[in-house]
Design a protein around this nucleic acid. Structure first.
Lengths: 329, 329
DNA sequence: TTGTATGCGTTATCAT
DNA sequence: ATGATAACGCATACAA
C-alpha cells in the first residue's frame, strides 16, 4: 500500500503537507489540497489508521461488547451503534461475550489499546471490574446502572406496569413472569415492575426463570407456566415470549383464548403468529444514543457521567384477551 | 498506560528483552521471562497492539463486512466468524454496508490498514473492485464466486432443486420464486435452481422480486404471488417466506392448504407459525469456515485460492402440502 | 541469552 | 502556507 511519503514525492510536496491535506485541510491552500488529493487518489492512498493512532493516541475505533450478537435485540442495537459511529468517523470493533462475565473481562483487556472507548451492552461483569476498566478507557453502559458512570437505560418498567394494569382491568387475577438469569439488570427491573404492579392490583404473581433467554428456553418453560394459576404471562423478551406461545400451542392451549402472552423489545413481535403484544423498547435508539454519548465524551463535549433513559410503550397486538373464566360469565 | 520502556527500566533489562518476554519468550532465559512479566503485571503493562501492528504490519484484526447485521442469517454468521477469529487471537472489526455497494468500497478502504484480511459476506460490489481490494489484503468471499479468489459458497441450489422435485411429486404444477435484487449471487443461484428443476419437471415457474429481502417485503409480495397460477412459492430466504405466509394469512389464504411456502436459511424457520419448511444452509459453518480459511491464508498454511462448498438440506415442516385441486379429487 | 540501533507511517512542533 | 524533524511504542536485524 502506498504511504504518505510516496504521495508526497509524487505530488512534489512534503509529507507534512500530505498529512494536512487529509487531516487539517483548512491550514492549506485549497489548490494544493486538491492537487494532493488527486495524486493520492491515483495512487490509491488512504491514511494508515494504525500509524495515525500511534501518533495521536486516538485509534478511531470504538469497542462494542454484547452478550449475544445473534439476539435480534443486540444485532439491531449493534447496527445502530455502528452506523452512528461510522458517521462520526469511528470504526466498530465487536466482541461477543457469549453471556460469560469472564469473557467480557478478557475482551475489555484485549481490545483496550486499539479502542478509544467502549460501549458495554447489558454487561454481566461485577461492578468492581467495570470500574477498573472504566479507569483506563471511557466506557458507556447500556442497561446497567453503576453510579457515576455514563449509561443508557431502557426503562421497560413503566411498560411492564402498564401491561399488568391492563391485564388487571380485563379481569386477570394471576400472572406469571418468565425471566432471564438474575445477573441481568434489565431482568431485575422488569421482574420488579411486574411484582410491584401485581401487588398494587392485588394480583397473584409467580416468577419463573429460564437459563438463557431464547426461543427454545421459552418453549420449555410453557409447562411450568401452566403449573401456576396464571392466566397471563409476561416474558423478559420477545424470543422467550414467542417460545412460550409455541410451547402453549403444542399443549393445545390457545393464545390468547386460554392464556395471554406479552413479550418485550418489539423486535420480532410484529412478525410472529399471532402477532405478539409486547413492550416496545427502541433498541435502535439505545445503540445510537450510546454511540453518540461515547463519542461526545471522547470529544470532551459532554461530561463523563450522563444518564439517558429511554421510554417504553405497551404495544397491543393479538396475544392478549380476558381470562377464560371471565369470558364464560 | 505504562510503556515497554518503563517496564524495561523497572526490570533492569533492555526494551528488547521486555518485547521478547511477551512476543518470543522461547528466546529468553525462563527466569528473566518470569521476572519481566512479574514487573509488567505490577505496573499493569500490556503490549500496545497499535504499536505492534505498525511495527510488524500485522494488526491482529480481521475485517468482516456484511450487507445487514440485523439479518439473522448474517448475525449468526458474524457470531461464528467472530468466535473462531477470537480463538485464533484475532479481533473482529465489523462493517455494515446496508446493502449499498459503494459503502462496501468505502469500508474496505477505511478498514484495510488496521486489518490483516477481510471476509466479505454476500458482497454487492463489482468484480473489478473486489479484485482491486484483494490485491492489497487477503480477502475471503462468502456467497460470491470470483475466479481465483478464496470463497465459501453455500450450495442452496441442490436444496432448491430437491424442494421443487418434492413439490412436483405431490402434485404441484406451477411454482413462484420470490427473489432478492439480482446483484446477489445467492439469489441468482437459487433462482436458477428453481427454474432448472421446474423446467425438468415440466412445471410452470414465475419469478418475482422484492426490493430488499425482509419480512415486510415478503408480506407485500403476497398479492403478486396470488396473481400467478402458482400453488407453491419458494422464497430467497426465511424472512421473505415468513412475510409471504403473513401476507397470505391476511388474505385468508391458508398455508399449506391453499398455498405451500418454502424458505431458505433455517435460521428462524423452526420458530415461525406454522413452522416453516426451508432449505437449511448452515450459516454458522459459513462464518466459521470463512474465518478459518482467512486465518490459514494469513498464516501461509493454505494456498490463497480455496473453494469451500457447504451443502444444504431440505427441511420439511408444516408449510408444504399437495395443491388444493389435487386434494379435491 | 541479551543489548543496540533502526524503521514502521503518521502527526505535531518548530521553523521558514 | 509549507517544510524539516522529532516523537509515538514496539519488533527485529545485527552485534556481542
Amino acid at each position: 500500500m502506498p504511504t504518505i511519503k510516496e504521495v508526497a514525492e509524487a505530488a512534489g510536496v512534503s509529507r507534512a503537507t500530505v498529512s494536512r491535506a487529509f487531516g487539517k485541510p483548512t491550514l492549506l491552500n485549497p489548490a494544493t489540497v486538491e492537487h494532493v488529493r488527486t495524486i493520492a487518489r491515483q495512487l490509491g492512498y488512504a491514511p494508515n489508521q494504525v500509524a495515525r493512532a500511534l501518533s495521536t493516541g486516538r485509534a478511531g475505533n470504538i469497542g462494542l461488547i454484547v452478550p449475544d450478537i445473534a439476539n435480534p435485540f443486540f444485532s439491531t442495537l449493534i447496527r445502530a451503534a455502528q452506523a452512528h459511529a461510522y458517521t462520526a468517523g469511528y470504526s466498530t470493533i465487536l466482541g461477543d461475550s457469549d453471556e460469560v462475565p469472564a469473557m467480557e473481562d478478557v475482551l475489555l483487556g484485549k481490545l483496550a489499546p486499539q479502542v478509544e472507548g467502549f460501549i458495554l451492552a447489558s454487561p454481566r461483569l461485577s461492578m468492581q471490574r467495570i470500574k477498573a476498566h472504566a479507569s483506563r478507557r471511557p466506557l458507556v453502559l447500556i442497561n446497567r446502572d453503576v453510579a457515576g458512570m455514563p449509561k443508557v437505560l431502557i426503562d421497560a418498567a413503566s411498560g411492564f406496569e402498564e401491561a399488568v394494569d391492563l391485564l388487571a382491568s380485563i379481569g386477570h387475577r394471576s400472572v406469571a413472569y418468565v425471566g432471564a438469569p438474575k445477573a441481568s439488570w434489565a431482568n431485575r427491573q422488569r421482574q420488579n415492575a411486574v411484582l410491584n404492579a401485581a401487588g398494587r392490583q392485588g394480583m397473584t404473581a409467580t416468577v419463573l426463570h429460564v437459563p438463557r433467554p431464547d426461543h427454545e428456553a421459552g418453549r420449555a418453560s410453557a409447562a411450568e407456566v401452566l403449573a401456576t394459576s396464571a392466566t397471563a404471562v409476561l416474558a423478559v423478551d420477545d424470543l422467550v415470549a414467542q417460545g412460550i406461545v409455541a410451547g402453549l400451542n403444542e399443549r393445545k392451549i390457545s393464545v390468547p383464548g386460554d392464556m395471554s402472552v406479552i413479550g418485550c423489545d418489539d423486535i420480532i413481535a410484529a412478525t410472529t403468529h399471532p402477532p405478539l403484544s409486547t413492550i416496545a423498547v427502541h433498541c435502535r435508539d439505545a445503540g445510537w444514543r450510546a454511540a453518540e454519548l461515547l463519542i461526545s465524551i471522547l470529544n470532551g463535549s459532554l461530561p463523563p457521567a450522563m444518564k439517558l433513559i429511554l421510554k417504553s410503550d405497551l404495544v397491543l397486538r393479538q396475544t392478549v384477551a380476558p381470562p377464560p373464566h371471565f369470558q364464560k360469565r
